Simulated scan of single mutants.
Amino acid sequence: MKHNFSSFARRACATLAAGGMAVLSGCSSSAPLFLPDGRATTLVQCPAGSDLCSQQATASCGGAFDVVRQSTESGTLNLIYACRAK
Results as ranks from 00 to 15, higher is better:
Gly62Ile: 10
Tyr81Cys: 12
Ala31Asn: 09
Asp51Cys: 05
Phe8Gln: 07
Gln55Pro: 00
Ala48Asp: 15
Leu43Glu: 07
Arg10Asp: 02
Ala31Tyr: 11
Ala31Leu: 10
Val23Arg: 08
Thr76Cys: 04
Pro47Asp: 14
Asn4Cys: 02
Gly26His: 05
Ala59Ile: 01
Phe34Tyr: 15
Gly20Cys: 05
Leu16His: 10
Gly62Tyr: 09
Ser25Arg: 08
Ser60Gln: 12
Asp37Tyr: 10
Tyr81Gly: 12
Lys86Ala: 15
Ala9Met: 07
Thr15Ser: 13
Ala48Tyr: 12
Leu24Gly: 12
Cys83His: 07
Cys46Ser: 15
Gly63Asn: 08
Val67His: 04
Leu79Val: 03
Asn4Gly: 00
Gly38Met: 08
Thr72Phe: 10
Gln70Arg: 15
Asp51Leu: 07
Ala48Ile: 07
Asp66Glu: 14
Ala18Glu: 07
Ala14Glu: 03
Tyr81Asp: 09
Val23Ile: 03
Lys86Ile: 07
Lys2Asn: 10
Ser28Asp: 15
Asp37Phe: 10
Ser71Phe: 07
Cys53Gln: 00
Ala18Asp: 04
Phe5Asn: 10
Cys13Phe: 00
Val68Arg: 05
Pro32Cys: 01
Ala85Cys: 01
Ala48Asn: 15
Arg10Thr: 00
Gly20Ile: 06
His3Asp: 11
Thr42Gly: 02
Ser50Val: 03
Gly49Gln: 15
Cys83Val: 05
Gln56Ser: 08
Gln56Lys: 05
Phe8Met: 04
Pro47Cys: 04
Ser74His: 11
Gln56Ala: 12
Asn78Gln: 14
Met1Arg: 12
Ser54Leu: 01
Arg84Met: 14
Arg69Lys: 14
Phe5His: 09
Pro32Leu: 05
Arg69Tyr: 14
Ala64Arg: 14
Ser30Asp: 03
Val68Phe: 06
Cys27Phe: 04
Pro47Arg: 15
Ser29Ala: 15
Ala59Ser: 12
